[in-house]
C-alpha cells in the first residue's frame, strides 16, 4: 500500500492544435506527493495548470509524459477513482433531477447500492443545510445550494480522497464557514483533501501543506508557516538593553531596526541568532518575545507569481521543508 494518497512524478502536459504546429505547455514537470489524511492546497494564477493537474489525476485528460497515482493505483485505471470524491469547478448537475435523485444516481455510479445511498443522503443533506430541498429539482437551486449539493455528491460514497475545486465558489460568508467546518470534520476523519482554490484565506485556514503553481511548474511547496516565514528576520521585544545595542549588533554582523517598542533583527542564520541572543542576555537585557517575522500568504503568492524565470528562486526547485 502506497504511503501517499496522491502522487505525481514529472507530469508534463502539452496542448496542441490539430493542423497547427503551435503547442502550449500547461504542465512542465510537476512532481508532488500528498500524504494520507493530509489537507493539501494547490494555488496558482489563472492558467498556471491547477485544473490540468486535477484533470490528469482524475483521468479526464492524459499527461504527455510522467505518471500519477491515487492511493497507489495509476490514474489510468478507473479503480483509482473508486475511493475518490470530486467537486469540479463550474459543475452542472442535470437540472431535471432533485437533490435526492442526484445523490442516488451519482452514488450508484460511484459503486454503492441504492439502499446505502438512501441511508446516507438525508443526513448528508442535513449537514449541508439543504435537507428541506431534497425533493426539489436542482434547476430551482441557487448557486450556493448547487455548490453544497456538489459537496454532498462528492461525499456520498465516503471516499478516502477528496478533490475540491473552488468548494466555496458562490457561497455566502456564513456558508463558507460552514463548508470549511464540514471539510475540517472530514479531514479529522482521516480523509485526504486536495483543495484547489483562488481564495488564499481558505488555503491558509484549511491546508496542512500548499503548492504554488506558476506557468506549469511548482514555484514553492511546503507548510503554510514555512512558506510565509520571511527568511531570517525576527521580531524581538526586550527590556534593559544597553544604549549601544544597535552598534554592537551591527558590529556582530546583524542589522537591526527599532520600531514601535520592538526591534526587527536580521541575522545570517539560526546559529547567528543564538549568538546574538546570548550576548544580549549577557549584557543584562531581559528578553520578552522572540518571533519570526512572517509574510502573508498573499505576499508570498504575489512575489512568486510576479517573479520571472531566471530571477530569484528558480521555479519548481524551491521547496520548504
Amino acid at each position: 500500500m502506497s504511503e501517499f494518497a496522491i502522487e505525481t512524478q514529472e507530469l508534463r502536459k502539452t496542448f496542441t492544435t490539430p493542423f497547427s504546429s503551435r503547442a502550449v505547455t500547461a504542465l512542465d514537470g510537476v512532481s508532488l506527493s500528498v500524504g494520507r489524511g493530509e489537507v493539501f492546497g494547490l494555488l496558482g494564477p489563472n492558467g498556471a495548470g491547477k485544473t490540468t493537474t486535477v484533470k490528469i489525476l482524475l483521468d479526464l485528460t492524459r499527461a504527455t509524459s510522467g505518471s500519477a497515482s491515487i492511493l497507489g493505483t495509476p490514474t489510468s485505471d478507473p479503480e483509482s477513482r473508486r475511493r475518490v470524491g470530486y467537486l469540479p469547478e463550474g459543475h452542472r448537475f442535470p437540472g431535471y433531477l432533485t437533490a435526492r435523485q442526484t445523490l442516488s444516481i451519482f452514488g450508484r455510479m460511484s459503486g454503492i447500492d441504492k439502499e446505502m445511498v438512501e441511508k446516507r443522503a438525508m443526513p448528508l443533506l442535513e449537514r449541508l443545510r439543504i435537507a428541506e430541498w431534497a425533493d426539489i429539482r436542482v434547476k430551482k437551486f441557487s448557486k450556493g445550494m448547487v455548490q453544497r449539493l456538489g459537496i454532498a455528491c462528492s461525499l456520498i460514497h465516503e471516499p478516502e480522497v477528496l478533490f475540491l475545486d473552488e468548494p466555496t465558489d458562490g457561497v455566502d460568508p456564513v456558508g463558507r464557514r460552514e463548508i470549511r467546518d464540514l471539510l475540517k470534520e472530514e479531514a479529522a476523519k482521516g480523509r485526504t483533501i486536495f483543495l484547489n482554490s483562488h481564495l488564499l484565506s481558505e488555503i491558509e485556514l484549511m491546508c496542512d501543506r500548499t503548492a504554488i503553481l506558476r506557468k506549469g511548474t511548482i514555484a514553492a511547496m511546503g507548510r503554510i508557516d514555512e512558506l510565509t516565514r520571511r527568511g531570517t528576520t525576527y521580531k524581538i521585544k526586550a527590556t534593559g538593553t544597553p544604549d549601544n545595542l544597535v552598534e554592537a549588533l551591527t558590529a556582530a554582523g546583524a542589522s537591526i531596526e527599532k520600531m514601535n517598542g520592538h526591534m526587527v533583527l536580521n541575522v545570517r542564520d539560526v546559529e547567528h541568532l543564538n549568538e546574538l541572543i546570548d550576548s544580549l542576555r549577557a549584557s543584562g537585557a531581559m528578553l520578552h518575545e522572540l518571533t519570526p517575522v512572517r509574510s502573508s500568504l498573499e505576499d508570498v503568492f504575489v512575489d512568486l507569481v510576479r517573479a520571472t524565470d531566471g530571477e530569484g528562486t528558480p521555479a519548481s526547485t524551491r521547496e520548504v521543508n
Binding site: K55, L58, Y86, F106
Partner: peptide
C-alpha cells in the same frame, strides 16, 4: 467531469 470522475 461528474460522470468520468466515477470508477466507471
Amino acid at each position: 467531469d461528474l460522470y468520468l470522475s466515477r470508477p466507471v
